[in-house]
């Protein structure tokens, strides 16, 4: 059934990949104009946003390809999609089978433990593949630049961990609800609520965007560890719930 699952996820994979590729091309094709427009702001003073000098410094930094990739591609654009990509891949993986009542057919062939393993593995295989593609995409434009991808390796870690956490949460909702729509909206609501709560400094941990978009903070390794533990716990709980669920 692994082949079937991968085939089912391929359409989502291609749609997400096309959107990200479009975004990627746009960001890198408009590098010069982004730098120019940032520099143009140095002649103006915008209240609250700071004086022109800062824009000049920013424009100079953006000329460095490593900085440009980190700020414009990883942090500002692709990084925002990470939790959503996980939710899109995971929300229907179990719920659709319950919805369409195809679990009964599956249970004739393999047991619940294997079903859980195959489905979970397929989802994370596709999600992680996309994370790798997102991470390595800038190499396409790197041939003329002094680009050191190792400087950005923390982004790869934060993408993988963030994607794993939201994949696990969405898998749980997919098992808990017998309806794909409920599973999707529950995941989105959970993401929204945790993000809002996480705006308060004391509850930063809940805001996974802060972690994914800025992996250079002092709590990076602690949060990496905690998110990993949380993801594994949710996944183990989901497995237990699935093995005992009335289908």
């Amino acid at each position: 059934m692994f082949k079937k699952e991968i085939k089912d996820l391929t359409i989502k994979f291609l749609v997400v990949l096309i959107i990200l590729t479009g975004l990627f091309i746009f960001i890198f094709a408009s590098k010069d104009s982004i730098i120019e427009s940032t520099r143009a702001l140095s002649n103006t003073t915008i209240p609250l946003l700071g004086n022109g000098e800062q824009y000049e410094i920013l424009a100079q930094k953006l000329e460095d390809f490593n900085f440009y990739v980190q700020s414009q591609w990883y942090a500002k654009n692709s990084g925002q999609f990470i939790p959503f990509i996980s939710i899109i891949f995971a929300f229907s993986i179990f719920a659709l089978e319950t919805d369409k009542k195809t679990f009964y057919f599956l249970l004739n062939i393999i047991d619940r433990k294997k079903i859980f393993f195959i489905k979970t593995f397929s989802v994370f295989f596709m999600i992680f593949l996309l994370m790798l593609i997102i991470f390595f995409m800038p190499l396409i434009f790197a041939f003329n630049n002094e680009f050191n991808i190792l400087l950005s390796i923390r982004y790869l870690i934060s993408f993988l961990i963030g994607a794993f956490l939201w994949g696990s949460i969405s898998i749980f909702f997919s098992i808990f609800f017998n309806d794909s729509l409920k599973s999707f909206f529950s995941s989105i609501i959970a993401l929204t609520l945790t993000t809002i709560i996480g705006i308060m400094p004391l509850f930063n941990f809940f805001n996974t965007f802060l972690y994914v978009l800025n992996p250079f903070g002092s709590s990076f390794w602690l949060f990496t560890f905690l998110y990993l533990i949380l993801g594994v716990t949710v996944l183990l709980f989901s497995r237990r719930y699935f093995l005992n669920k009335d289908l």
Binding site: K100, Y104, F105, I110, D111, R112
Partner: peptide, 22 residues
């Protein structure tokens, strides 16, 4: 137990739904 069921039972459900796109 589940092992006995998988090895010795074969089941046709009331809802005869298969994977439509295969």
């Amino acid at each position: 137990n589940n092992k006995i069921i998988l090895e010795n039972f074969s089941f046709l459900p009331e809802e005869k739904n298969l994977y439509e796109n295969m």
